[in-house]
Design a protein around this nucleic acid. Structure first.
Lengths: 134, 134
DNA sequence: CTCATTTCAGTGTTACTGACATAC
DNA sequence: CGTATGTCAGTATCACTGAAATGA
């Protein structure tokens, strides 16, 4: 039974849980120099296929201007390709490369590990309930 | 039923919920120029009484260096007092003022409003379950 | 002309790090 | 001496804003 005002607020609890998760993830990603934006973009590319930067932004909820910087980081690493769209010369088509897909699989395992660590105190049923409520 | 990999992750869901809550709170606080750190410090002062900045930092989870800046903001507004501790000249004793307590009550109502807005889709029982799981 | 896209530059909050001087 | 405190300066991520240039 949390006694203080703050500790009773779901908002507070959600924030602390999120901060905890963020910290675990950031630490896990730090080893490979990956940031959250990179992972989210790789996932979007893997699941929705190549697309323009604006499309990626809409899919991931990342602002267009931040997509630019994230793609700027992924391309030199060879994890994604940036090519002009011949059909619409405003657009760049971003494509997941083979090394990018490979890196994504590694990161997926990292995320799964953090997931398990985070949810360790919860049973299967409780996890399902949590997901449903959120 | 979320179909994509990311949307199934509790970590992701918690983050989105947290971001949503943060945004609502920041917007609600913005009108009075309050930030999250300010609210947390006021709550700590109200519930634990006066204390040194280092103690406040430990109570709230805010870094010492960030406590400095937050107190720097609260004092000129008259919401808190900063006085040297005669018993330990390294320390400043931070005290909640009457206007500070009053402001805190206003902010509490703001937080409660955000709380309700955030949890509107959940029943009483579901809210309790969520709090318990977190 | 209007709208979409990419890009750059900048802001703000939260969180953390390192260093320093002071005092216990 | 080591440790605690307050302070300052700086970094990082995520998120957002505004503006400019280009092209549909």
């Amino acid at each position: 039974m949390p006694s203080t005002r703050v500790e009773r607020h779901p908002t507070w609890l959600v924030n602390r849980a999120s901060a905890h998760a963020q910290r675990l993830l950031a630490d896990a990603f730090a080893a490979s120099g990956t940031r959250g934006y990179h992972y989210r973009l790789l996932v979007a590319l893997d699941e929705h296929g190549p697309g323009s930067q604006a499309q990626l932004g809409r899919l991931t909820g990342i602002d267009r201007s931040d997509v630019v910087a994230a793609v700027d980081a992924l391309v030199p690493e060879g994890l994604a390709k940036r090519e002009p769209d011949p059909a619409d010369r405003r657009r760049n088509i971003i494509t997941l490369t083979r090394p990018g897909a490979k890196r994504l699989r590694v990161l997926d395992r990292v995320v799964a590990g953090v997931q398990d660590e985070l949810l360790a105190p919860l049973s299967e049923r409780e996890r399902a309930t949590l997901v449903r409520l959120l």
